[in-house]
Write a protein that binds this DNA or RNA. Structure first.
Lengths: 199, 199
DNA sequence: GTCTATAGTCTGATAGAC
DNA sequence: GTCTATCAGACTATAGAC
């Protein structure tokens, strides 16, 4: 029988690996991140990585699953009295802030290879579907509130929300150093909800 | 002295290589595209590729330069009587259609490695700057027409236009098969200019 | 430490311009 | 017939998954 201590150590190490992968995926993207990087960041031997995750693809998938689960949690934690529209706005704002702090985007748009493998990863798909369902409901509700355009299909809007989290505009603005993170988030939210045209 | 015939053959082959790279970059992205793929697509030996382009990075950079130059041409070809706002809309529409037909995005957002090397590629930077200048002028003009929001900085809007051409929403909607390319373009344009909110 | 993938190079054979 | 570009493909070196 395994001692509770060992189990706990394993869980903590797994979290540490996911934290490292999260940071490195955010910084370099999937293709440029190496398993050596991850091992070094965690401070463990590379072989130990493979005790927890059987492949680089699985590690990335697990990192995405944790992100989706956190996103669902975030959604659940919003004040209940907010309108659906306000909730969507808060969610996007949260995701953009996370991204600016070095977090990973909600879409694996940086790598075709990763995308392919995720499409056959059951836990990933399950987690994604669950988040999708929650967001689709919110978008529908916001349409019913008269706050979102009915001309745009719900799945388009949901996808567009995900896409905002991997919008290279974020990095370009941040790299340019002319804008504070606050301003970037405000511009992104305004442009997404109101468009670039004059009201 | 080299015969004109030979020169012409060389130019045609160079175009063919760029065409192949354009298609493959659009389909697989920079990292997943191999030089063997390119050679096979063109139907020439790999060594011959290197007669024209000294490296994969240079090949990608040249492909981007050609895209930027074509974009500038496209801009110049627009009817002179259009407003700046209408020109911007037409340009984005053109870029989105190209992308849906398998073209490459205007930002190298698919690869950190490529991005790094492009940042030190003189011809690439020159071409990008030239397009940037043209687009910035248009955006400013559209603001003066009262058509674009003054709350959003010009460089933000310009970057956001580029970013629309590599928006994964495009591929997701196209992959889903529920929408015709026409509809996707319309939704993208509406969402970009008017936002997702109810007018 | 092993193995695969791939960028980039080299060679000997061949075809086609002149 | 000569010459040069190109070809197919073997080869090297390196990076990185495992």
């Amino acid at each position: 029988m395994v001692t509770p201590y060992r189990v706990k150590q394993l869980q903590m190490r797994e979290e540490a690996i996911l934290d490292a992968a999260h940071v490195l995926l955010g910084k370099y993207g999937y293709d440029a991140m190496t398993m050596d990087d991850v091992a070094a960041e965690v401070g463990i031997a590379k072989a130990s990585l493979y005790k927890h995750f059987e492949s680089k693809e699985k590690l990335a998938a697990s990192t995405m699953v944790r992100l989706f689960d956190r996103t669902v949690d975030q959604l659940a934690a919003l004040p209940a009295n907010l309108s659906a529209y306000e909730k969507l706005r808060k969610m996007l704002e949260w995701a953009l802030r996370e991204r600016l702090r070095g977090g990973i985007p909600h879409l694996p748009s940086t790598s075709t290879t990763l995308e392919q493998s995720l499409m056959t990863d059951e836990p990933y798909l399950a987690s994604l579907l669950s988040l999708n369902a929650a967001l689709s409901l919110l978008v529908e509700a916001a349409k019913n509130e008269g706050k979102l355009s009915r001309a745009l299909p719900t799945d388009y809007i949901v996808t567009a929300i995900y896409a905002r989290t991997c919008d290279p505009t974020l990095e370009y603005m941040q790299r340019g150093k002319n804008y504070r993170d606050e301003e970037i988030v405000t511009h992104m939210l305004d442009a997404f909800f109101m468009g670039v045209s004059k009201a």
